[in-house]
Simulated scan of single mutants.
Amino acid sequence: MVDIFAQIHTLMKMGGPVVMLLVLLSVLSSAAILYKLWHFSYIGIGRHKRARQALVLWREADGRRLSRFSNRARLLSA
């Protein structure tokens, strides 16, 4: 473990502030990417179950049941 830190320290010494800045930006961008992947997974991006259900109900022209999916459908069925 100490050997890894020694290698990182040597790399930083050789590259100077530019390498330190690049490493910092790489860590920050990787963290942002991982956060957004988690966030998209959490909010359900890519899951289309409700959209499929709404489409089936729309094709069946069942406006009353469709209205729970959208306000526009509620207005159209009135």
Rank of each mutant, 00 (worst) to 15 (best):
M1I: 10
M1W: 12
V2E: 15
V2P: 12
D3P: 05
I4E: 12
F5G: 10
F5P: 05
F5L: 13
Q7P: 08
Q7T: 14
Q7D: 15
Q7W: 14
Q7Y: 15
I8D: 08
L11R: 07
M12W: 14
K13R: 11
K13E: 14
M14H: 08
M14V: 14
M14G: 03
M14F: 14
G16L: 09
G16E: 09
P17T: 10
P17Y: 14
V18K: 02
V19K: 01
M20A: 08
M20P: 00
L21M: 14
L21C: 06
V23F: 01
V23E: 00
V23S: 02
L24Y: 11
L25Y: 04
S26H: 09
V27D: 09
V27Y: 15
L28E: 09
L28M: 13
L28V: 12
L28G: 04
S29P: 08
S29N: 07
S29C: 06
S29H: 11
S30C: 13
S30I: 10
S30K: 11
A31L: 15
A31M: 15
A32L: 15
I33M: 03
I33A: 07
L34C: 05
L34Y: 12
Y35W: 11
L37C: 08
L37G: 05
L37D: 10
W38P: 02
W38A: 07
H39N: 09
H39L: 15
F40A: 04
F40T: 04
F40I: 08
S41G: 12
S41R: 10
I43D: 01
I45K: 06
G46F: 00
G46Y: 02
G46S: 00
R47F: 05
R47M: 07
R47A: 08
H48R: 12
K49G: 06
K49W: 06
R50H: 13
A51T: 11
R52P: 00
R52I: 04
Q53A: 11
Q53Y: 05
Q53D: 13
A54P: 02
A54M: 12
A54V: 03
L55E: 11
V56S: 07
V56I: 13
L57G: 01
L57N: 01
L57I: 02
W58R: 06
W58C: 03
R59E: 08
R59N: 08
R59D: 06
R59C: 08
R59Q: 03
R59F: 06
E60C: 02
D62Q: 09
D62Y: 03
D62R: 11
D62C: 10
G63N: 04
R64D: 10
R64A: 08
R65G: 01
L66Q: 01
S67M: 03
S67D: 01
R68F: 00
R68W: 00
F69R: 04
F69M: 03
F69Y: 15
F69G: 05
S70Y: 00
S70I: 03
S70P: 01
N71A: 10
N71Q: 14
N71K: 15
A73T: 08
L75I: 06
L75P: 00
L76D: 13
L76R: 15
S77G: 07
S77P: 01
A78V: 04
A78P: 06
